[in-house]
Design a protein around this nucleic acid. Sequence first.
DNA 1: ACAAGTTTTGACGTTTCGTCATATTCTCTC
DNA 2: GAGAGAATATGACGAAACGTCAAAACTTGT
Lengths: 260, 260
Amino acid sequence: MPNKDNNDPKSLTRKQRELFEREQLILDTAQHILQHEGLQSLTMDRVAAEVEYSKGTIYNHFNSKEEIISGIGCRCMNKLIAMFDRAKNYPGSHRERIAAVGIAHSLYAELHPVELQNMQLVKSSAVRKKVSAEKQQELLQLEQQVTGIVLQIIRDAMQQGDIPNDQAHLPDGIMLGLWSMGYGSNLLHISAIPFDQLGIKQPLEMMWINSHKLLDSYQWQPLSNTFDIHALKEKICNEIFAEEVSELKIIIESEKKNAR
Amino acid sequence: MPNKDNNDPKSLTRKQRELFEREQLILDTAQHILQHEGLQSLTMDRVAAEVEYSKGTIYNHFNSKEEIISGIGCRCMNKLIAMFDRAKNYPGSHRERIAAVGIAHSLYAELHPVELQNMQLVKSSAVRKKVSAEKQQELLQLEQQVTGIVLQIIRDAMQQGDIPNDQAHLPDGIMLGLWSMGYGSNLLHISAIPFDQLGIKQPLEMMWINSHKLLDSYQWQPLSNTFDIHALKEKICNEIFAEEVSELKIIIESEKKNAR
DNA sequence: ACAAGTTTTGACGTTTCGTCATATTCTCTC
DNA sequence: GAGAGAATATGACGAAACGTCAAAACTTGT
């Protein structure tokens, strides 16, 4: 290109930036297809056609389709971590902060069911086997960030005396309890089980209640019989996740319209 | 065939039996491949070769690969239900019976991690989309059997007065709490997260403790501070699941040998 | 302007799913 | 027991998708 007035000494960086941006474009495109048409429509030829590069170029960025799927998984984890971080920084009691993390988790599940399913897919051995060690390390590191946030809040609470120290399995027990219950509830939520028809409550609603019962069992002060957990939920939703909640309302509205 | 001394009037039934047996053979074979070589080795040609029928014949039984995978899923669910049933019939307190169900669930996860992953796969939309409505109905019905067993025990306990009736969300709350925590713990258990290395306890161990904490929160008598939950686990393992436990020991032994 | 290096391309080989016309086997009647 | 007609089994084939690689296009430095 003759136009060289941009005499930036970091031309190497420009190239790298282009590479990086293209990588993002590929992931954007793939994620969009995945979200709107499902995994069976996510083919390499399709992605190549939509980003308007050839398949070979796609393969210069990602060694396999699975690597793209993992890449999407990483982005989703980052989005989740951003929400968890906001929850962590909520200026309330430690019990309120951990509750905010729980709300972040279920809001994420409601807002991005497809991504959740994809994150599940990434963990399957079929995908993991074809993904580079680096990407796996990246995913593991992200997972650790998540547990790190939760553990930090629990440790803060212990240090502050909100949780009695004379119990076994701390802080792991609380972390694993919340993690497995949240994880399980989210997956039940996105499963095809028609809870309504079976006369069973929605998993995400019950998760909120059951998590508090679990925290009560660990005697995490203040206990839930001293405050209104539903009011707390409302409060946290308004103060930290207003944006997500309104997004969710829009989704629910449009689903209602589709049902009609 | 000239040899017709077997003058059974139900020759139709014999044919049906043959068909059924072949179907089982196909599923046996597919499950064996899946278990020992993973999903990527489970191809229709491979199954056809191993059962020594042509691919067309396989397709007379199952309309797609996904239908075979779902078929395997159904068998696994049935195996799980059989274990749950044994737990349900344990002649102890209701709290002991529900605890036995929990043990059944984690034993299953430890004994059959591959099947668990497969049952997860069946729930993915990619598979569900290609499966007949009947099979989906069958899967749903099996899932209901599972929840039915749990709900029955909870209702028994309520009727007997073991659980105070003055609480909201009964029996659903307990059921969903145990289900999501068990489900989540099992999936964490089979995930690739190296809990040991991260200095975190194993999800299945914590699930036992946290489930009891949850039941305590619902004030399900007798509360866990009045008995030794680890002794109870030992007792239930010996009295109902001796076979599974010894199977598990063999697996653990052989894994140790492989590690060396 | 040209050469050396880098990146892009898309045709191609391979695998695997699922189909279907043909071949085989079975069953029932005479 | 023979033969017609129905039921079942077969495997070659088409289609779709992954991943590769030699050749083409572009970039950069001299």
